[in-house]
Design a protein around this nucleic acid. Structure first.
Lengths: 131, 131
DNA sequence: GTGGCCGTATTAGTGTAGTAATACACGTGC
DNA sequence: GCACGTGTATTACTACACTAATACGGCCAC
């Protein structure tokens, strides 16, 4: 397991908070299998230097990932990716997805979309994700 | 068509911005048919007085609804609900729903949910909305 | 015209999220 | 012991969202 710093990149002027961009990237890397259980995330200082971002911003992202159970802080080592793929989503994660889905559906209903319309939108999103 | 002020209520301490609560309520009232094309929204001052909210906050909500094409500002009359139910959702609204749906699906994928899992979550949300 | 009603533009106050700077605690290898 | 590596706690700065106060322009009834 080597150095994963090159896998990351941020766009400070995108409007999306940097720490959130990092979270999304870690989740994406895990989902795509490029980051696996046991891998170590780059250290906050190292990645901060490479991305020209304050290391506290990286720390916030890593801390949030730890709170979500995605990684674990092992003392004297760093942030280690947890075996989340095999165990399936945590209740916490599932709740998040449910909330997001509710928002989408409610908005759709408010706009007058029918059940079929919503289903079409849902299918389009799924296809877009390559599922 | 009379006075619709009694249909509205806000909770300033809910964490959700007041103006957004009002937008949601208008959209909901239209979706449920209690507010129809041609109906006039309460005036910003009247509703502001009833709800003990600054009328500029109401104005922001109404202005946003107008920007979304939900209502139209008719000079010397007020905010009039547009015929949006029959015409179907505007491209703008549809884009919003798509974005929300994408967020939900992407997050689900990142959490390792399968297509079937996502479908289940989607169906649950739809049921919850009474569709 | 006058008064009263509509929403709006402008400006300011307030709270909070995001970011950053500093100092710190812990673990490892020498 | 010391040097160097982790991430963290605390604090402060900045930007923006939300709310509010004031003054304004348009429309209608009289």
């Amino acid at each position: 397991m080597g150095d994963f710093t090159t896998l990351f990149s941020v766009n400070p002027s995108s409007g999306v908070p940097i720490y959130r961009q990092l979270i999304e990237q870690v989740l994406g890397l895990i989902a795509s299998g490029r980051l696996r259980a046991g891998d170590e995330l780059p250290s906050v200082r190292q990645l901060g230097a490479v991305l020209s971002v304050n290391f506290m911003t990286i720390s916030k992202a890593w801390a949030r990932l730890e709170a979500d159970g995605v990684v674990l802080h092992e003392r004297g080592r760093g942030m280690v990716v947890q075996a989340v793929g095999g165990a399936g989503p945590t209740p916490q994660q599932l709740r998040q997805v449910r909330e997001l889905m509710d928002q989408a559906v409610v908005r759709g209903v408010q706009c007058g979309l029918s059940r079929a319309d919503l289903k079409a939108v849902f299918r389009a999103s799924v296809e877009e994700c390559g599922l």
